[in-house]
């Protein structure tokens, strides 16, 4: 009746160990929790190594070091060789563990922040502000669509503006701003409700998946 596969048993026991938390915290849950943290960190390490460091640094850098120089010019002219610079800068993160040098960690952080802010600034304005506003106004002014789509487009634009007014804290919420912010709250609540519903259904489908695994693959009750 039960599965003869050791891996299925391991998965089933760990699943039950995690579900045991619904009763109360216990050593089985704690074992699974600590194992999950460790394995997730190990998985993250392997992914960074295999998907980021190897293709973007180790392979091209090694290729630059071992290439026949006659064909590709001097080593210092090879852009792949200069990948050593971000690698050395990245190593400055380790200075965090050396008290006398810990301030050096600010260098890679500053480079990351500078690049992130600079590259992100225009992209954010384009995607999160202009595109969203374009879509909201476009739906509300699409007279060609007519009828209900146009009405819902206008309702949607009102929703966007009132939601924004709720987050406008430079003025006290009095008078027209108060009414607008109150309408914004209703839109926000419907939005949060919809997100809540979607998230619950996502979690329930995960639960169904685990129960199905236990009943089908482990104890073979369902075939």
């Amino acid at each position: 009746m039960f599965s003869h596969d050791i891996w299925v048993w391991i998965a089933a026991v760990l699943t039950l160990a995690i579900f045991s938390f619904l009763y109360k915290e216990n050593p089985f849950y704690r074992f699974a929790e600590y194992l999950f943290v460790g394995m997730s960190a190990g998985y993250g390490l392997a992914r960074v190594w295999n998907n980021a460091l190897v293709p973007n640094f180790i392979n091209p850098f090694w290729a630059a070091l071992t290439a026949e120089r006659g064909a590709t010019g001097p080593l210092l002219a090879d852009p792949r060789f200069w990948l050593i610079v971000p690698a050395l800068l990245g190593l400055l993160y380790i200075c965090r563990f050396i008290p006398s040098l810990s301030h050096l960690i600010l260098v890679p952080i500053a480079i990351g922040l500078g690049l992130g802010s600079g590259m992100g600034l225009a992209a954010i304005i384009q995607t999160d502000i202009i595109k969203q506003m374009q879509s909201a106004i476009g739906d509300a002014s699409n007279v060609a669509a007519g009828g209900w789509p146009l009405v819902w487009g206008i309702v949607s634009l009102v929703g966007v503006l009132t939601t924004l007014s709720y987050f406008f804290f430079s003025r006290e919420h009095k008078g027209a701003l108060k009414y607008s912010a109150n309408i914004g709250i209703w839109f926000l609540m419907v939005g949060f409700g919809a997100s809540f519903g979607n998230t619950v259904m996502g979690r329930v489908s995960l639960l169904i998946g685990r129960v199905q695994f236990l009943l089908t693959d482990w104890i073979h009750v369902i075939r």
Binding site: A136, W152, V155, V158, G159, V160, L164, F187, G191
Partner: peptide, 12 residues
Amino acid sequence: VPNMASKRGILL
């Protein structure tokens, strides 16, 4: 409609 409006407001 209402969900999209609130999400757009939040994104903005």
